[in-house]
Design a protein around this nucleic acid. Structure first.
Lengths: 221, 221
DNA sequence: ATATTTTTTTAGTCTTGTCTAAATTTTATT
DNA sequence: AATAAAATTTAGACAAGACTAAAAAAATAT
C-alpha cells in the first residue's frame, strides 16, 4: 500500500525529473513540497526500500519504472478531475488545483476509468497539459509560439515569453490566460497578423503579440 | 482543522446516536470503526476538547450542535457522491460505498454545492437514504411496509422485516435489494396482492410478501 | 450487600511523517 | 590543494492515532 505522502513525493519527483532531466536533489524536493530537507531524506529511504526510486546518498534520486508508473497514474487522475471540475461543475481553470490535489488520491480504478469515459476521454486538462492514458502513455505536444500556429487549428495558451506587466495587462483585458483556447481563423501574409477566435469572439493580433504567447496544439482524438 | 479520523468518528457517533436515541457508548463506536475501545477513548477526549461532542467519563457521548452539523455535512457529501457514482459513472448501488467513503472527506464547499446542482439536487441517495441540504436539514421520510404503499407512487426498498434465507432468496431471484425502485401499479382489493413495476418488469406480489418489505416513498422535488 | 463480570479508562509503547540541531559530504572559492 | 560554503544526512524529539496490558468504574448476579 502506498500512502498519500508517498504519492505526493512521487508526483513531485516526476515533475522535477522531467524538468531537470537528470537526478533530482533533496533540496529541490523539499522546496516543492514545502518541507525540510531532513524530512525528504527520511522519505527517500522509504521510497527506495519500496523500489519506487533509485536513491544514492548525496547524489539525488530517480524514479524506477514502477515509481514512474505510479506518478503518471496520479497525474492522470489529477488532470481528469480538473477536466471534470471545469467542464461539469463550473470551476474556472485557476480554482481547480487545490481540489484536484485532494481528488487525485482517491483509490479506485473503476472510478477513474469511468470518469475518463464520462468526460469522453479528454486528451488535455484545462491548462493544456496532456492527460496520460490508462496505460500511462502521454501524448507529448511541443509548445510553439502562437505566430507559428496553423490556420484552422485550435490551440491552448500555455505560457508567455514576455512577462512585462504591460503585456500581462493586455492579456488580462482580453481575458487570455493559461488554458485559454485560441482558434486560428486567418493569417495575413503582409504583416503576419492573425485573426483569432478567443472566448467566442474574433480578434486580430499583431506579430509582436503572437510572438510572445506560447500555445500547445489540440490533439484530435 | 478537522482531521479525516475525526470526521469518521463524528459520522459514526451520529449514526449510532440517531439509532439508539441516547448517549453512545465507547464500545459501540469501537465496534463500528473496527478499532479498540482505548483508541476510542483517546479520540473522544480530543473531540470533547474541540467542542464537537459532550463526553462524560464512563457515561458515553453525544454530539454538540457543531458536531452534529459537521457529521451531517459529511453524510451529505457521502450521499451526493453515491448519486454521482450510480447516475453518472455506471456504478451499481453495492459498489459505491468504499469510494464514497473516500470522497466524503474532500474539502471544498464549492465542489459539493456544484455537485449537488449538477445532479439536480437529488433528495435521496441510491440506497433510499435522504440527502441533507446545504443547511444540514434532512427530509426524514418514514419507512413503511410495501403493503401500505399507494397506487401510482414510486418507492425505494430500504429493508426487510423477514430475513429468513427463503425470503432473501425470493428477493434475490427477482433482483430486489436495498435501493431497488418499486412502482405500485395496482392493488387488488380482494387479496391485497399488488402489481408492481420492478427493474422495468411488471410482477404481482401477494400480501405475505409485501408485508415484509420496507420502502420509503420518493419525495417529489 | 457483596462478588463477579463487563465496560471504560489509564499508562506506556509503536509507527508515520514531521521537526531541529549537529555531523558529514560535496561543491565552490581562493 | 586547502578552506569556506552549501547541500545532505544522521540523531534525537514530537504529535497523531493506533495498540496492549493493567487499573478503575459500572452493571449484573448471587
Amino acid at each position: 500500500m502506498i500512502t498519500l505522502s508517498e504519492e505526493n513525493y512521487l508526483k513531485t519527483i516526476y515533475h522535477l525529473e522531467s524538468r531537470e532531466g537528470n537526478a533530482v536533489s533533496t533540496n529541490a524536493i523539499a522546496e516543492k513540497i514545502e518541507t525540510k530537507a531532513s524530512s525528504v531524506t527520511d522519505m527517500l529511504k522509504k521510497l527506495a526500500e519500496k523500489n519506487l526510486i533509485t536513491y544514492i546518498k548525496y547524489k539525488g534520486v530517480n524514479l524506477t519504472k514502477e515509481g514512474k508508473l505510479t506518478a503518471v497514474d496520479i497525474i492522470r487522475k489529477h488532470r481528469l478531475w480538473e477536466v471534470f471540475l471545469v467542464d461539469k461543475l463550473n470551476f474556472s481553470w485557476d480554482e481547480v488545483h487545490d481540489v484536484a490535489e485532494q481528488l487525485e488520491h482517491i483509490k479506485s480504478q473503476k472510478l477513474i476509468n469511468e470518469l475518463d469515459a464520462f468526460l469522453k476521454f479528454p486528451s488535455h486538462d484545462p491548462h493544456g497539459d496532456p492527460i496520460p492514458d490508462k496505460n500511462g502513455q502521454i501524448q507529448r505536444t511541443a509548445k510553439i509560439v502562437l505566430s507559428m500556429a496553423q490556420i484552422d487549428k485550435t490551440y491552448t495558451c500555455v505560457g508567455v515569453l514576455d512577462s512585462s506587466s504591460e503585456f500581462l495587462k493586455y492579456l488580462d483585458k482580453h481575458k487570455i490566460g493559461i488554458g485559454t483556447e485560441i482558434e486560428v481563423k486567418d493569417k495575413e501574409e503582409f504583416d503576419q497578423s492573425m485573426t483569432l477566435k478567443i472566448n467566442k469572439k474574433e480578434m486580430v493580433m499583431s506579430k509582436s503579440i503572437t510572438n510572445n504567447i506560447y500555445v500547445k496544439a489540440h490533439n484530435e482524438h
